[in-house]
């Protein structure tokens, strides 16, 4: 039963090899989905290209549904994973900072790695910015960020428990919302691009 590595059912070298294979699949999905193209990424905020929303929510709900079913049928015990703890205050503030970073920089860290290593020069500079940002944060952590970083701690909170509903119902609701959103954004995208088209990505040769 999974997760295998935390229960020492696979060795560390095997775990690292699997990490590489899983990463390869992730990288193919990101590049093939168009995530090295910064204008496709930014499009989600301006209505001319919703590829981010479609890929992202499909990935999130595929994994949520899959892991929920595997947990129910005893193929994995979610309790044994490195389940994320919630620190809502720093996460909320940091999320807004990252949202601003998305609009200004046109990537997030994972997509910028794909972009930088496939020849996107702006992606390379973005990667440099991320490293400088982490360096600045890490060197000033004790003086500036420590107390904020540790504030708002709630422990390992499951959102369905938090809302007082079952995991299955919560996933079902989010999936329905996602599918409805897919239909609506496809319509918005057509409308935006027919009325006032931004120069087609194809014309830019990206």
């Amino acid at each position: 039963m999974g997760p295998l590595f935390p229960q020492e059912l696979i060795s560390e070298p095997v775990n690292l090899l699997i990490a590489f294979v899983i990463g390869t699949g992730f990288g193919i999905g990101l590049e093939a989905g168009g995530f090295t193209n910064t204008r496709k990424l930014a499009g989600v905020f301006y209505g001319y290209d919703f590829v981010v929303l479609k890929v992202f929510f499909t990935a999130a709900m595929t994994s949520a549904i899959g892991l929920f079913l595997m947990n129910n049928y005893g193929l994995i015990d979610i309790q044994l994973t490195f389940y994320p703890s919630t620190f809502w205050i720093p996460t909320l503030i940091a999320g807004l900072v990252m949202g601003l970073g998305f609009i200004v920089g046109g990537f997030c860290p994972g997509t910028s790695v794909c972009a930088a290593f496939t020849g996107k020069i702006d992606g390379m500079f973005f990667v440099g910015g991320v490293i400088l940002g982490i360096l600045g944060y890490s060197l000033s952590y004790d003086k500036i960020f420590k107390s904020l970083h540790l504030s708002g701690g709630m422990g390992k909170v499951n959102i369905a428990d938090f809302l007082g509903i079952s995991n299955g119902l919560f996933i079902f609701i989010v999936t329905v919302v996602a599918v409805v959103a897919f239909v609506i954004v496809t319509k918005i995208q057509k409308k935006v691009n027919s009325k006032d088209p931004v120069p087609a990505i194809e014309e830019l040769g990206l």
Binding site: P84, P90, A94, G95, V97, G105, C108, I131, G133, G136
Partner: peptide, 25 residues
């Protein structure tokens, strides 16, 4: 803009314990 965006993500991902992949997805 790319450098500035990267800086913001660098700080944000540390303060928020992850980025689009590690925190959200």
């Amino acid at each position: 803009a790319a450098i500035a965006g990267g800086l913001l993500w660098g700080v944000g991902s540390q303060l928020g314990r992850g980025c689009t992949s590690g925190l959200i997805m």
